[in-house]
Amino acid sequence: MSAILEKPVASGRRQGSGDAFRPSRLRRARKMTPMGFLLLVALIYLFIMVTFVLSTMRSQESLVRQGPFGPLSLGRLGFDWRQLQGFSDGIYFTWLKNSAIVAFGGSVLAVLVALPAGYVLAMLHFPGRRVLLFLTILTMVMPNTVLVIPLFLEVAAVHEVDKLWPVAVILGFFPFGTYLSFIHYRTTLPPEMLEAGRIDGVSEIGLFMRLASPLAKQAIALVFFFAFVADWTNYFLPLVMLPTSAVQTVSVGLQELITSSQLFNASAAAGLNVQLYIPELAFAALLQMLPVLAVFVGAQRYLARGAMLGAVKG
C-alpha cells in the first residue's frame, strides 16, 4: 500500500538513478535476453512471410529443389497471373468481384447503420438503452460463425440462397462498429453543442446529420476498415450462403483452387489446363489481400488510436 501512497519526488522519466549503480555488464545482459527473444520471434515471422511472398516469383521445381531461397524472376508473376486467368475461364476474377460487392456493400451498410445507432446510444436517454447496449456488447464478443447455419435456414426460408445481397445485409450488422461509434461520440461530442443546436430549433435528425456526422470522420474510417477486413476474409458465411461456384467470394474460391491443385488432388487435377502449385496459390492468396492492404493504407492515420479503442474496448 505504502508503495502507492508514497509519491516519487521527481516526476520525470522512470529511469531511476538507482540503476546507475548496477554493474553495467550485468545490466546489459539482462536487457539483451528479452530483446534477443523478441527479435528471434520476429525473425521467424519474417522468414515465414518473406519465403511465402517470394515463392510467387519462383517455380514449384525451384521450391522443391532449392529450398527456401532460390533465384527469383519477376516474369514469373505474369506466369502466375495467366494460370489464374486460365482456371475455369478466369472465375478467380469473378470471385474477386463478388467479394468486392459483398465486402463493400456490407461495410458501407455497417457504417450507415452503426454510426447513427452509436450516436443515439451515446447521446440520448431512452428506455431500453441499457438492454440495447448490453446486446451490442454481447453480440460483439460472440464469434460471427455462431449464427451461420441459423441464418442459412432463415435465408432459405425466403428463397434467397445463392444471391449476394443477403450476404451483404447480414455483414451490415456489425455490433463492434456500433460500439466504436458509441465510444467515439461518448468521448468527443460535448452535449452542450447539441443543446445549442436544439435551442436554435434544429430537429433531432438534423442535429445528427449536420452536427454529429461531420465530426465522425475517424469513427467512419475505423468502422469501415474493421468491417471491410472482417467481411473480405469471412469464409463460413459465403460458403454456406452461396453454394454455386460462380457467385462465390474469393475466400471460398481459394479453397476451390486448393482442392483443384495438382499438389493436393492429383486425380481431379489430371484434366486441369493450368498449373496450380504453391507459387500460383500463393499468388492468388496475396492478390486477394491487396484490397485489404489498400483499405489499411487509406485508414492508417486513424488506426493508431483505433487499435487502442478496438483493443482496449474489445
Binding site: P116, L121, L153, V169, F173, P191, E204
Partner: peptide
C-alpha cells in the same frame, strides 16, 4: 446525458436500421 425526459425522442428514428438488423440477423434466426 445531453437531454433527459421526453425531449430528443425524435432522434430514436436513427436507431431503427440497427434494431431492424439486430432482429433479422441476430434474434430472428
Amino acid at each position: 446525458f445531453a437531454i433527459s425526459g421526453r425531449q430528443g425522442r425524435g432522434g430514436l428514428v436513427l436507431l431503427v436500421p440497427y434494431v431492424v438488423l439486430l432482429l433479422i440477423v441476430g434474434i430472428i434466426p
